[in-house]
Simulated scan of single mutants.
Amino acid sequence: MTRLERSLAAYGAYHRDRRNVATHLVGIPMIFLAVVVLLSRPAWDVGVPVTPAILFAPGAGLFYLRLDLRFGAVMALLLALCCGAGLALAARGTAVWLGWGAGLFVAGWVIQFIGHAFEGRKPAFFDDLKSLLIGPLFVVAELAFLLGLRREVQAAIRH
Rank of each mutant, 00 (worst) to 15 (best):
G135Y: 12
F113I: 14
F118M: 13
I114F: 12
L149Y: 04
A90F: 05
P58G: 01
A80Y: 10
K122E: 15
D128T: 12
A43P: 00
A57E: 09
P123E: 14
L104I: 07
G108Y: 04
G99H: 01
L55T: 05
L137W: 00
F56N: 09
S40N: 08
G115E: 14
G72R: 03
F125R: 10
K122A: 15
G86V: 05
F56T: 14
V50K: 03
A57S: 11
L39K: 07
Q112N: 15
L146I: 07
A107I: 14
V140R: 06
T51A: 01
P123C: 12
V74A: 08
L98E: 10
I111A: 14
L98S: 00
V110N: 11
F56P: 00
G47L: 07
R92V: 04
A76E: 10
W44R: 04
G103I: 05
V74R: 01
V139G: 08
A60H: 05
A43I: 08
A60V: 13
G108C: 10
L133D: 09
G72A: 12
A117C: 09
L104G: 07
L77V: 15
L39S: 01
R151T: 03
F145T: 13
L87P: 03
G61T: 07
V37A: 01
G72C: 05
W44G: 01
G108T: 11
P52Y: 05
R66C: 15
L87E: 03
L133T: 08
W100P: 00
V106T: 13
F56G: 03
A95Q: 10
G135A: 15
I114R: 08
A88D: 02
S131R: 12
A144D: 08
A43C: 00
L143M: 14
Y64T: 09
A90W: 05
F71D: 02
G103K: 04
L143K: 05
T94D: 07
F126A: 13
L147R: 07
G148R: 00
I114M: 11
L78H: 04
F71K: 06
I54R: 11
V139P: 02
